[in-house]
Amino acid sequence: MEFDFQAIADSHQLVLSGLTWTLTMVFGSLALGVPIGLAACFAKLMMRGPINWIAIGYIEFYRTIPEMVNIFWIYFCLPLIFDVRFSSVASGLLALSLFSGAFLAEIFRAGIQAVPAGQIEAAYANGMPRRWIWAAIILPQATKLMIPAFISFFTDLVKVSGLLSAIGVGELIYQATVISNQTWKHFEMFTLVGVIYIAIITPLSLAAQHLEARYARNR
């Protein structure tokens, strides 16, 4: 068999719209997931009582449940429970946001707790006000420390966004399925999709590995 580049050229518009949807879902769920993650991290680290239990329960639950179950559950069951109709994009966005919120909360927590305790104790000993400790001591170091984990989570999120094709969100894989069912060019389409994903993910994961190795050396 030969590789038919014409098939790819003919369908480039659909592929581009799929790529746009993939990126929309990824960045949309990050935009919602970062505030959720910050809130859950705050509640887990610094609050007591019920809101702390809710945050811990949420984080643990979403870290154990398979992404596919999460997506299907929100798509099929949530409309019955809330008695509203969600579009597949809305339920996909909700599923990905809750997923990223839980994982980001753990990444933030790990970053904050990786700041050496001596730094905070030293700030206390110098009589630094509490907000200054956060603004000048904890957050700058924690942000730097969480970059590698954040990047590798981002690559995971890109991968997970592909699962949304199962509920009919028109992202990259969904478009590839549609095109290849019409043109019977499965090989070309899915190879193209694989190459696109590798082109997005490989540089990021190499960067994360590089940063992690550098931080480990400097410690």
Partner: peptide, 23 residues
């Protein structure tokens, strides 16, 4: 290793199921 890790499982799945038979 890089290909196996960087490609989402769902893409591998579709590739093996639909594209590989063409090959």
């Amino acid at each position: 290793v890089e290909i196996a890790r960087s490609t989402p499982l769902i893409v591998l799945l579709f590739w093996v199921h639909y594209a590989l038979p063409h090959l």
